[in-house]
Design a protein around this nucleic acid. Sequence first.
DNA 1: AACCGGTGGTTCGCTATTAGAAACAAAAAA
DNA 2: TTTTTTGTTTCTAATAGCGAACCACCGGTT
Lengths: 249, 249
Amino acid sequence: MLKTLDNALELLKHFTREKPQWGVRELAKEMNISHTVVYRMLATFERYGFVKQEPKTKKYELGFSFLEYASTLRDNLDITELIYPVMKRVAEATNESVFLTWLDGLEGICLEIAESRQQVKYAMSIGSRTLLYAGASNKVIMAYLPASTQSAIIEKGLRPRTGHTIQDKEALLQDLARIREDGWAYSVGEYTDTVFGIAVPLFSGDRQVVASLTIAGPDYRMPAEKVPEALRELQAAQQEVQAMLQRIF
Amino acid sequence: MLKTLDNALELLKHFTREKPQWGVRELAKEMNISHTVVYRMLATFERYGFVKQEPKTKKYELGFSFLEYASTLRDNLDITELIYPVMKRVAEATNESVFLTWLDGLEGICLEIAESRQQVKYAMSIGSRTLLYAGASNKVIMAYLPASTQSAIIEKGLRPRTGHTIQDKEALLQDLARIREDGWAYSVGEYTDTVFGIAVPLFSGDRQVVASLTIAGPDYRMPAEKVPEALRELQAAQQEVQAMLQRIF
DNA sequence: AACCGGTGGTTCGCTATTAGAAACAAAAAA
DNA sequence: TTTTTTGTTTCTAATAGCGAACCACCGGTT
């Protein structure tokens, strides 16, 4: 393990939505290290476009290189070309937004969004991480993980996202068992208040869960009687995407 | 400048669309350094999710952290909330896709795309870099840059992207002068074959070009007589976005 | 089964690189 | 104006990284 690189990557973590700009000395104080060191790291990052210095304020912020790497990363997964069209079709058929959530370690990460025509955007954008124990899109992934992994997620703590987030370990495991039997998940307001989700899992060639496909939107637009129709649409997409995944993975 | 960090960022450059996966020794040979060093760098990056190792092949590839940082980066610019809705409106009015290109050093970078309903996707995705001397979206930015910056771009070389890319220095400068007079640019097949572009510039609070807004699509869908109407739509969007930019920058 | 060339991962001593105090110039703030 | 704070540069002690040699493992060949 390289300490210099480790320090540098730790530094990057400080550039967040809440605090996107940092002065050299300001950041050094925050990290409890010499401002000289911070300066050198930022200067090196800047040469590669990972941060850039605003000429006026002299403060540093994230650079466009992240966009470039994110772009090639998404290309690697053939999402835009293969999966997105299917998602878009479901979005148009159901008039709701469709999300592709990928499994990454003990968390989920949103890889693609097909917006419905109804322009109601959510506070979820591509690249945002999610906890696996709340919301249909996440639970449907967790349901198919090995028991040991499920435990690991639970051990990390079940902090509630909303008033409807399941906080009891046993209740969660039971819920997951049911989802596994059904082959799909439905939830309302678990991850975000007043938002429903209908989700199905996606598997790799060797039958491991790797992702989920989700229809989501404001709860008032998806009463119980409309769920079966949306689910049918989603399951058709699932099969289609599944076939493509087998060929790749 | 930190050499260790510099090396590490140089290493990342090798993960491209063309070669997204690397073995430790393979990459070491490519970079002409010890495989031990490469291993240490990859291991450190992996702890932060910037690369990940595929369990089967043991090869490394880019990790999801880039998506996360790209996401917060885009949030910083308030694009999704403020500018995207305007772009979407133009896309629906004209039935063509609308692109937001940002100025970054001597290059452009695509920050947002509002797709038209007609599902014809281009090989351009968010985060891709573009050269400033070809195509309406780029030239309209270059046209408003100071002469010294224009020279710098030209000095770097005018490699043709297509058969219609302007390669003569004088011809280019003359074209830019005209664009500056008109306040907008129109081109066909300069950056990508059989693709037209109509573009207008966007300025920061202190009257510096920072970006461009572009309508683009297959050339057969935009004959000369339809250009004025599309331009009108685009210029309305320009004013609207401009007003928002003044408030931010 | 033994072999071989390949892989990713580990160890350890020498040495190049990095950290951090101090100093600097410039720009805000007093 | 002075004072404080900023980003940046310089210097040297000492830490952290380099790389040869190492191991354990895998997959194909003999």
